[in-house]
Design a protein around this nucleic acid. Structure first.
Lengths: 207, 207
DNA sequence: AACTAATAATACTAAATTAGTTTCTATCGT
DNA sequence: ACGATAGAAACTAATTTAGTATTATTAGTT
């Protein structure tokens, strides 16, 4: 009898041990890749036994699935929160969304992407798809409104403008570049959004 | 006879392929650890065959040795250069040395240290020893002069003051903390050196 | 064209590592 | 004391990896 019958509604997400495992796995998977992180490593780092690890997750793969699900949920919530918090005007919301996206996406390092692309193409596709959905949902709405309000040019797909912004942020907002350019993190965002927005925005007709 | 003619004064170390290998290995070893970087990974990344890799280095261990030797040489040269460049006054030199040390030491991430400590204790000891030598050589001289000149208090070992400084830099000068504190990288250094120096320096008697 | 030297690509092997299981023992709340 | 849980460690089967050998290709030289 392996199954626990007592509390079947033991909320999957609220178990603190489970949460600790997912957190540690997320950190290491995303920064070092899936292959490179062993279950033994995780157990040692968490100071739990492998047995306990496997009590919470039947396999390494299932742990990865939970990590990804959790990560997407976190990012989506953070983007929503950012939009709500900065809901003053277009560029304010955009700024908040970009900063949040950068902060969250920065955790995903090349080794992880390489691992997924190479050894789990279906997972890779899924990640790409969900990334696109997230962008569409959180940025797309903003830009669609901007276009309706005549604040954003319509001759270039909003999706493309968004990717240009994200690409610029990804390229600039890393420590060496920041230092090289003598910026603060905040200053970097301001500069990027200023540059791209003043290229992307139509002249304000209210003036 | 076919021979490289480009720089004859460096015939021993100037092989560009060898240099590329050491560079890539350094980056990956120091950031992900020794275990987690495979020779196949390196070969693929460098777009060379394993055969070529093993033509330049007889074993993975020998590659590690070269990486470490090269790293120490680089750090030492960078510190010398920093001291020369900022050779105006005590705090200017110190500032330059700290910034350089931070930049160079930041490449060495926990997984590498863990690997060395766990699987190659003698290498770990060697690294620690050479680190201490470097610090002694580059910082020690500066502080000894400072003490002779009556600019640095003598009742606390210079070595300890230096480690306090380095510890503070290590603790503060990472992106999350920098952002959390709303600093620029440069501003962080200025704040740290100011705080610690004004605690470490005797009042200037010329006034 | 033939020769030489270097290398990419690939396949291979022996050794090491790892995902997942099992056994044994200790702890803890009831 | 009981029953469930967890740590520690040994274990196994499957995978991975360091290092080697083979072959084919390229480029320069004679």
């Amino acid at each position: 009898m392996k199954r626990k019958q007592k509390s079947r509604k033991k909320t999957r997400t609220a178990d603190p041990v489970r949460q600790r495992i997912v957190d540690a796995a997320r950190t290491h998977f995303l920064s070092h890749g899936f292959r490179r992180v062993t279950m033994d490593d995780l157990a040692v780092e968490l100071a739990i036994s492998k047995k306990t690890l496997y009590r919470y997750f039947p396999s390494k793969t299932s742990l990865l699935e939970d990590v990804l699900a959790h990560k997407f949920a976190t990012v989506s919530a953070a983007l929503e929160e950012a939009a709500r918090e900065h809901a003053r005007d277009f560029s304010s919301v955009l700024h908040g969304l970009l900063a949040t996206a950068q902060r969250e996406l920065d955790e995903i390092k090349p080794p992880f992407v390489r691992d997924m692309r190479q050894k789990a193409p279906h997972v890779f596709k899924m990640v790409e798809r969900r990334r696109a959905e997230l962008i569409q949902r959180h940025f797309g709405k903003l830009f669609a409104e901007g276009q309706r309000a005549g604040r954003v040019r319509k001759d270039i797909p909003a999706k493309l403008i968004i990717e240009i912004l994200l690409g610029a942020v990804q390229a600039i907002m890393n420590p060496p570049k920041i230092e090289e350019l003598g910026l603060t993190p905040k200053g970097g965002f301001i500069a990027i959004t200023k540059v791209v927005l003043e290229g992307a925005l139509l002249p304000d007709r209210r003036a």
